[in-house]
């Protein structure tokens, strides 16, 4: 009989009430802290501080409310692995999107306009763009106007006239850049 009772009984790890109330109080306190810090102007550090507080709060929720501290460690591994893959996903995507303007900038600022290098890049020199309409002019303008990289990016982005960004951007600029060649 005792064996049967064991089979259907459950030995739970029951946390004392003060743990839940203490963690909950800390979470509410940290919410007030993050609001207070946001009122102080710290430039880019505002984002870092806000994210650090959010991560701290999330860790408290995970460890105590979701019992990761006490449960089977496999659950923690599943949780952390999802965050790891999310980190890979976001960081590799940002490597692309944050650098997207750079290539247009390099192409648009030839040190020596008639250099052979530009033939292999299939890009017309800046002075060859006269009399052509559309994206070449836009891309050249955005790049030669001496904007910083973010400016160039923004212009390249707007050039498509929509928000889908990505592949359309690239396709648009590429065709625009090639057209003067065929025109000559």
């Amino acid at each position: 009989m005792s064996q049967l009772t064991d089979k259907y009984s459950h030995h739970a790890h029951i946390l004392p009430l003060k743990v839940y109330l203490g963690i909950g109080g800390t979470l509410i306190f940290m919410t007030l802290v993050t609001v207070a810090v946001a009122q102080v102007h710290l430039g880019p550090f505002n984002l870092l501080v806000a994210l650090a507080i959010a991560v701290f709060k999330a860790i408290l929720v995970g460890l105590f409310f979701m019992h990761l501290k006490y449960d089977n460690k496999l659950f923690a591994v599943i949780f952390v692995s999802s965050l790891a893959f999310l980190g890979i996903f976001i960081s590799i995507t940002l490597f692309d999107t944050l650098r997207r303007g750079d290539i247009y900038q390099e192409v648009g600022m030839p040190i020596k306009a008639n250099s052979n290098m530009y033939d292999s890049l299939r890009v017309a020199p800046a002075h060859g763009a006269s009399g052509h309409e559309g994206a070449t002019d836009k891309a050249t303008e955005s790049v030669t106007s001496g904007d910083d990289s973010s400016g160039a990016k923004a212009t390249g982005h707007e050039g498509t006239g929509n928000d889908s960004g990505g592949a359309k951007d690239t396709g648009h600029v590429a065709t625009g850049v090639e057209s003067p060649k065929s025109g000559h």
Partner: peptide, 13 residues
């Protein structure tokens, strides 16, 4: 708790 956790990030962001 996960839904709560997501909001913990959405709020400052």
């Amino acid at each position: 708790h996960l839904v709560d956790m997501v909001w913990i990030f959405l709020f400052p962001l």
